[in-house]
Amino acid sequence: MSAVRIIADILIGIGGIFALAGTIGILKMPDTFSRMQASTCIPTLGTVCALLGALLFAIFNKGDAGAAVKIAVICLLILVTNPLGSHALAKGAYKAGIRPEKKMEVDDLGRDLYGD
């Protein structure tokens, strides 16, 4: 087992830990928006760490440039598209009238735009 292989394995493990944290958050958070916040852990450090590990593995153990480039592009596309989805979901949920059960301490959006 080479040193690169060990580093790649550690990175994939770290990614798994963050994905686990995000999943726990999705299951245990009290309201829609907080759940969405916790889920952001999964595509950012969870996926990116795992893909970095795969990238190291592809470059140094397989020597496969095509696979390495594809992994890098996947990483880039996830980082670019994920915030668009989160933003659209959060705004859509708020517009559709979903509010947390326990009232939020500060809610400027409701005060200014929706007249809560």
Partner: peptide
Amino acid sequence: TLTPGTITMEVT
């Protein structure tokens, strides 16, 4: 939005 803990919801 990409940072966990904050989501941009609206711009005015």
